[in-house]
Design a protein around this nucleic acid. Structure first.
Lengths: 342, 342
DNA sequence: CAGATTTGTTTAATCGATTAAGCAATCAGG
DNA sequence: CCTGATTGCTTAATCGATTAAACAAATCTG
């Protein structure tokens, strides 16, 4: 049963030739190394008969290329990341690469550990959705000359390749949309974070309010900690709706915030959009199936994933390629949760 | 910038000793191979200073162990699989293993291709959520003596290790629950599939109807093709609700069916649970946030994932371990979508 | 037909680690 | 002081592939 693995040597032996010849033939270099036609055929036949499968470890060790991409994301069980992972997987396969995914839990230490495991496995490059305070990773990758692309989030003060959404604009558009629909007191719930994409989502919102001469109150903008989201978001919403000047619309800066927020809004029996208009970031089936389908900023997930892979592959093939920085627009998908105020 | 990688040889050179010694020390075998204490310390110090990182390809090549698990699932962007992948990832890490995930798209050919890529990468074992008609994979793995565990689905006619949910019971419980709540004409929408878990879900449903002397009509049981789910499910539901004897409750056999079905039910403006009681398999945020939270059969995702890894690791360590076949119960989580009929 | 060229194949080093076997030097015991 | 055990380290083979260099035989050239 346990038929030992078939190696080049076995084929060579069976054909009565050296392993070199077998290698030449099976790696398609028969012309280049002028292998005899009949011998080439014979070797191919034997390889097929023995069901030869190359050992990619050996290949990688020798060649220094593993055709493997390390993907570090926050959490594969978050649909945004799961979807993007799927796109990356598919695009990578098209390019002959395999993807190894790791979840960082938005935790810099875990990211660091993951990165090292993957480096030791000799991945050819990284696609990274950065966790907070993980600049160190980026510097490390630069230092060892490892190709990488930041996805979805980047550090503006560090020069790197990246593929991201234009978050300030997305947030601006979300807010402006609510304004146009007649909402007057628009709140935003975001994560408490120094990550640029989150700062941008906050900035875009503030900007839209300003540009449209809308009022703003401190309790309309809430930043909650990722780790304690469940409790904090309740306080945040309580505060936003019960204040002397309660919000009439809410923007959720991420999918996770929306899920937690909507659950509590349901508990409070607030009706969307009559009591509260909603626009959210992220995307998932839940936005369609909510009793009042949720207006959301649709990020170009497919394109983000595909582009990240393409950029990375380009970088792997030519590390001296000049820096590639791509920012894509999100599009607003209007549903009933932001129906016009009368 | 591109500081070449540090190898054992570099450390050996820097310490003025042979690579063997370095290897002994860094792999913690200093006692066993009686390395001098001061030399051991010196080597460790140099390794740390040079920031030595072992090349896992070389290690794997030499030792025949890569501490890598191949995970083949239907689709990482399906929350059920994403969640289970996450559990597997975490449990694998605890055991010192890295996971490589591939999505098969419920496609046997793609599964086969994926399996081979992973075999070539010398994974130590597989966790597989089988696609239809992929018995061949199982036979292949058995033949080459590769440890593996089937997850979520298994082939009853093939003796393998597996970790699954007791689907007949789950389905039975789902149906009985609806019966107990006073529903009289209960339908089931499943996938058209020979996969055992799907047959079992259908069987459990039929059994529950029988045991409770409930009526049954052919148009209450629909099987739709995975590939054409979006159109087919509309026909199916049309047929089920508009027949001369329309259903008053519906069981969705999977998450994907539920999503598509609920969308159409919304379109039809059918009210849950008044027009239609619902129980679904699968699990996701959407069940909580639907206007009428959905009663569902909660599979023990965490335990399924964890157990699959544990079983696989056991098999890897001791391939002659006797067969491990584990079936776990799903629990019914009651929400408003199956509120009692008056 | 001698020398140059081409053709077809082998030899052996290499990637980075592991590990069995071997070899000095030191030490203990008689 | 000799013998045998112990300690500390080195040598070299190995995992499975790649590939530069060498080599022998066949073919060409003038």
């Amino acid at each position: 049963m346990k038929s030992r693995k078939v190696s080049l040597k076995d084929i060579a032996h069976s054909a009565g030739v050296s392993t070199a010849l077998v290698s030449y033939v099976l790696s398609g270099k028969e012309k280049e190394y002028r292998v005899g036609l009949d011998m080439a055929l014979k070797i191919k036949a034997i390889a097929k008969e023995l069901k030869y499968q190359p050992n990619l470890l050996a290949k990688g060790l020798r060649s220094g290329k593993t055709y493997t991409i390390g993907l570090i994301i926050a959490d594969i069980s978050n649909p945004f990341f799961a979807n993007i992972a799927r796109e990356i997987e598919d695009e990578a396969e098209k390019n002959g690469y395999t993807v190894i995914i790791g979840s960082s839990d938005e935790n810099a230490a875990r990211s660091w550990k993951l990165m090292n495991v993957l480096i030791n496995r000799q991945v050819d490059g990284f696609i990274i959705v950065s966790a907070e305070n993980s600049e160190k990773l980026v510097y490390q990758l630069v230092e060892i000359g490892m190709p990488f692309v930041l996805l979805d989030r980047h550090f503006p003060e560090i020069q790197t390749d990246f593929v991201v959404t234009n978050n300030a604009k997305a947030s601006y558009d979300a807010c402006r949309h609510l304004i146009e629909r007649g909402y007057k007191k628009i709140g935003l719930i975001a994560y408490k974070s120094d990550l640029f994409h989150m700062r941008e989502r906050i900035r875009g919102y503030r900007q839209a309010l300003n540009d449209n001469r809308m009022g703003f109150r401190a309790n309309w903008l809430k930043e909650v900690y990722f780790e304690t989201i469940a409790v904090e978001i309740r306080q945040a919403i309580d505060d936003m709706v019960s204040a002397e000047s309660p919000v009439d619309a809410l923007i959720f800066a991420t999918y996770g915030l929306a899920i937690n927020g909507l659950k509590y809004i349901n508990e409070l029996r607030l009706k969307v959009p009559d009591d509260l208009g909603i626009v959210s970031f992220g995307q998932a089936e839940v936005f369609d199936l909510y009793y009042c389908p949720i207006t959301f900023m649709k990020q170009p997930i497919e394109l983000l994933g595909k582009t990240a892979v393409d950029v990375l592959v380009k970088k792997i093939l030519n590390p001296d390629e000049e820096q590639i920085q791509i920012s894509m627009d999100a599009t607003l998908v209007e549903r009933e949760s932001s129906t016009a105020r009368t």
